[in-house]
């Protein structure tokens, strides 16, 4: 068994040598790379990585450069998960046959995908990987929109957000469907570990990633990735927007172990109104008009109901 890297505090964490390189072409202030480097820094083991098509893939593998200091592959929009699952299956087969060149090393298998590749396009493939029980981690970089192709709505886009295919205007208030509950769906696969993380809570995030690496079987991590371009806020505000999201409980941080035991890992000291979170982003600007104001109250009611539900589930541990 490999050792779990000791990360007691931020100073200790800062001695990590990054395996994700700069001069990638992600936007200034993009949360994707904050998340990716935390995932990669959470372990000292070898990494076998794949990415589905999306911002992360197109920006980190721009010809003739690669930003990855680990084995990394990209195939298609839908199959980042199956690429890693295939590598993992081969690793297992070689291990059984005793043909591994470095049998003492214990590589970690991680697939990255955006919310488009996870919630919509790659869903069937991820579901397959989880059903087959590969020993891998799938990290969804959830920025609630197809940011790479110009901001089309995905099934992760929340109600009221203005996206290029669901634009807000005189009649429409933007996206009309609620966000898909991917966490519940992945937990229903019986995965040993499913967790929701946000980049502003680095310690919570690293702890969950390490738990995920230690778990045997498929692990799903849903990481909120604030998108400065499509959520329309200034690049320096990425962390403060993430703070607003976690403190207003729009994006609660919790984990589900073995599909049943739900633990809330972050309870904000002061819960702030959802209005503050919505008001900080340009994609919700149109909600602050007389005719759309009722949507903000609906938002608040939805977030409160969800928080109630999570707390009840945690208490009942079912």
């Amino acid at each position: 068994m490999s050792e779990i890297k000791k990360i007691k505090n931020l100073k200790e964490f800062s001695t990590s040598a990054d395996r994700f390189e700069g001069a990638n072409l992600l936007c200034p202030g993009c949360a994707h790379s904050i998340i990716v480097r935390e995932v990669l820094n959470a372990t000292n083991d070898d990494l076998i990585l794949a990415a589905s098509t999306g911002c992360l893939e197109v920006c980190t593998a721009v010809y003739p450069y690669t930003s990855w200091d680990a084995s990394w592959i990209h195939i298609g929009f839908e199959n980042g998960s199956s690429a890693v699952a295939g590598a993992e299956a081969m690793y297992k087969a070689l291990k059984t046959k005793g043909r591994l060149k470095q049998p003492d090393r214990t590589p970690k298998f991680v697939a990255f995908g955006g919310d488009g590749a996870t919630y919509d396009i790659g869903f069937q493939w991820i579901s397959g990987c989880f059903e087959r029980g590969h020993n891998m981690m799938y990290v969804c970089l959830d920025n609630e929109v197809y940011a790479n192709t110009g901001g089309q709505r995905s099934s992760s886009t929340p109600i009221g957000a203005s996206a290029t295919t669901t634009p807000a205007g005189r009649i429409s208030y933007g996206e009309k469907r609620n966000k898909k509950d991917m966490m519940a769906i992945m937990a229903a696969h019986g995965a040993p570990y499913v967790a929701q993380v946000a980049p502003n809570k680095w310690k919570d995030m690293v702890a969950k990633i390490q738990k995920g690496f230690a778990a045997e079987g498929p692990v799903f991590i849903n990481a909120m990735s604030a998108c400065t371009t499509e959520w329309k806020f200034a690049p320096e505000d990425t962390i403060s927007i993430s703070d607003l999201a976690t403190d207003s409980l729009v994006f609660p941080l919790y984990e589900i172990i073995d599909g049943t035991q739900l633990n809330i890992t972050y309870r904000p000291k002061n819960i702030i109104p959802v209005r503050d979170y919505l008001g900080a982003q340009g994609r919700f600007k149109h909600l602050f008009t007389k005719q759309n104001e009722y949507l903000i109250d609906e938002w608040q009611a939805r977030v409160d109901a969800k928080w109630d539900y999570l707390q009840r589930r945690e208490e009942a541990s079912v």
Partner: peptide, 13 residues
Amino acid sequence: DCQFCWVYCPDMS
């Protein structure tokens, strides 16, 4: 040396 800038820098800079 709190290292907040280190952990939140998106560009490893």
